[in-house]
């Protein structure tokens, strides 16, 4: 193991977390990310037993997950794989596909609501120009947020994840936390 100490996308040793009333915003630096693109004519593989999801959808299985990012293209997620060579693991699972390491290309922020699911669309209405159906539980989509390109994933009705380019992490955190702070008054 290297003795270099990694920093999170927000530039600290430990991932940041903040609470705004019923909303909790958490930086997640433990996600392994790798994109998987099918070669021409290739059938979809099933890395880690995942059935690669349909357009606009996400799926999870144990610590692994996948979400659709484009035609014949998915992002594969591995919880707890932030510092390993996740792309190599994915490649072993899908040797014929094109795999690109993306772990450090992105910063992932999870937002959870302790006041039920309604707070999630209330927050997202301040951030992304999408109808709530586009980020309903089980959905994943890419869109713009304050001129930054982000993935919006909805693993459950009380959680939403925003995954943006790593270099924008501070601006993304600012945008989400300002919006969340404006919903601080909503009772838990």
């Amino acid at each position: 193991m290297t003795d270099l100490i990694p920093l999170t996308a927000l530039g600290a040793v430990d991932a940041r977390t903040a609470r705004f009333g019923a909303l909790t915003l958490t930086e997640d630096d433990s996600l392994g990310l790798a994109s998987l693109t099918l070669r021409k004519g290739q059938a979809a593989p099933t890395p880690f037993g995942l059935t690669l999801p349909e357009v606009g959808a996400m799926t999870t299985s144990g610590p692994y997950g996948a979400f659709w990012t484009g035609a014949n293209q998915w992002m594969i997620i591995g919880a707890g794989q932030g510092t390993g060579d996740f792309a190599a693991l994915v490649h072993a699972e899908a040797p014929n596909a094109s795999i690109t390491e993306q772990t450090d290309g992105f910063a992932a922020f999870h937002i959870t609501s302790a006041a039920g699911p309604d707070l999630i669309p209330a927050l997202m209405a301040k951030l992304v120009n999408l109808p709530p159906a586009a980020y309903a539980p089980g959905h994943a989509t890419r869109t713009g947020l304050e001129h930054m390109t982000v993935f919006v994933l909805r693993p459950s009705d009380t959680q939403i994840s925003v995954i943006g380019m790593r270099s924008y992490a501070a601006s993304l955190w600012h945008a989400i936390s300002v919006a969340a702070a404006r919903l601080e008054h909503v009772p838990v």
């Binding site: 659709w68 990012t69 713009g144």
Partner: peptide, 12 residues
């Protein structure tokens, strides 16, 4: 008929 790129989307 014109070309549009889904830059903040699926890159189509």
């Amino acid at each position: 008929r014109e070309l549009w790129f889904h830059e903040q989307g699926d890159r189509s």
